[in-house]
């Protein structure tokens, strides 16, 4: 995953409203735009804008179903983001063990 994609992903998830939207989708069940926009404390138009930001960051996908638009979580970017962090964590574990060995000599 490129640095730019990582930054874009974490930026997308770094907003309370967008995080709430992702939470609502986190069991994998698609929700229609109207349902998803309810009780977010912002206008429907504002909600639409936040959902669009999540689309741009590849966090969610839109699927037109009849007259409605369904919003679904796209696990790809999230998985990559998680893997990126997990890889960095593993590196730090190795480095800190090396620090321990060096300083305990």
């Amino acid at each position: 995953m490129s640095q730019a994609a990582v930054v874009q992903l974490f930026k997308a998830l770094g907003d309370p409203v967008r995080l709430q939207i992702v939470q609502r989708l986190s069991n994998g069940v698609p929700l229609c735009m109207g349902e998803l926009s309810k009780d977010l404390g912002i206008s429907r138009q504002g909600a639409r804008k936040q959902i669009q930001a999540l689309v741009t960051a590849n966090v969610v996908q839109l699927h037109p179903v009849g007259r409605e638009v369904k919003v679904q979580l796209d696990a790809t970017a999230l998985t990559q983001g998680r893997d990126f962090i997990a890889a960095l964590e593993a590196q730090w574990d190795q480095r800190l063990q090396a620090l321990k060995q060096f300083t305990e000599q």
């Binding site: 998830l13 964590e89 620090l99």
Partner: peptide, 23 residues
């Protein structure tokens, strides 16, 4: 998605020794 990496470990050395190893 977490936005922070946090690690903690115990080392049998003085703070000065560890600080110097880093700095």
């Amino acid at each position: 998605m977490q936005n922070i990496i946090q690690r903690e470990l115990m080392i049998n050395a003085t703070a000065e020794r560890i600080y110097n190893a880093i700095a």
